[in-house]
């Protein structure tokens, strides 16, 4: 059975634009999206900006209320965040694009992790917290000495490791990574992608990995769903979707990405 299921999800937003009167229809950001993530599986969600990827992620973790459709965990429908059991809340944790704004800059790493444990006391380690904290940091490839640093003293890559540690602190089963490596330099990006793959193995984590970068998703996803204007236009095994895209939109994304790929450019005679 799937760990996560998203069934025919619809999310719309009231138009705030003053030019539209209150009568005008709401803006439909997600228009009937269905997805499934199995335990241990990494599913990539790709699409250009504005296609609705973040909105799907926020609906999964309960930050926006769907107009219709359902988000199910272990087959059990989840309500909005306030009506989820703590176990349900812990199960799906989100990692955001910009760790500098998702971490409080003046909090130390120790305080950030302690806060996660305070929010979900049942996930807090019994006994020695310091040892548990150091194990957690080690798990994400951070030195124990980082614990006493404030977030604003860390590099972008270190911040993203702390965000991942904060998510792992409550022992989730699913990570929802929203453009989690998009703001990182390419050498650091490779480290974080590698870390995510390793964590999946070590903790049997499933992931919904959202990115606008087809190349990045290709590196880590078992399956891919391609979104366009609130709709999943194509979904399948990564090798199938990228090897032989069936939808014209997927093909256009792939063509553009290939046009920019290093190996093609090395052979710059083609044009």
């Amino acid at each position: 059975m799937s760990l996560l299921e998203v069934n025919d999800l619809r999310v719309s937003f009231a138009r705030r634009n003053a030019w539209f009167r209150s009568r005008s229809a709401d803006f439909v950001a997600v228009d009937g999206v269905s997805l499934a993530v199995a335990p241990d599986e990494i599913v990539g969600l790709v699409g250009e900006s504005g296609s609705g990827k973040t909105t799907v992620a926020r609906a999964i973790v309960g930050l926006v209320r769907p107009g219709s459709g359902a988000v199910l965990l272990d087959g059990v429908p989840l309500g909005p965040v306030g009506r989820r059991t703590t176990a349900q809340q812990r199960a799906a944790q989100m990692v955001f694009q910009d760790p500098r704004s998702s971490l409080s800059p003046r909090m130390t790493v120790t305080a950030i992790i302690n806060e996660a444990w305070r929010t979900h006391p049942e996930s807090a380690p019994p006994g020695d917290r310091t040892a548990a904290l150091h194990r957690l940091l080690d798990d994400v490839g951070l030195d124990a000495s980082v614990a006493r640093h404030r977030a604003d003293e860390l590099s972008g890559g270190q911040c993203q490791r702390v965000s991942i540690a904060r998510a792992l602190a409550v022992r989730p089963r699913l990570l929802v990574c929203d453009e989690a490596v998009s703001a990182l330099d390419v050498s650091v990006q490779a480290q974080i992608l590698r870390l995510l793959v390793d964590l999946r193995e070590r903790h049997h984590l499933a992931m919904l990995f959202i990115s606008h970068d087809l190349g990045v998703v290709h590196q880590i996803a078992d399956r891919i769903a391609v979104m366009r204007r609130g709709v999943v236009v194509e979904e399948g095994r990564t090798t199938d979707v990228l090897g032989a895209p069936r939808h014209e939109y997927t093909r256009s994304l792939l063509d553009a990405a290939l046009e920019l790929s290093t190996t093609d450019a090395q052979d710059r005679s083609g044009n």
Partner: peptide, 9 residues
Amino acid sequence: PAVRTRTAL
């Protein structure tokens, strides 16, 4: 991260 090779990691 290329779309044809899976070696970046």
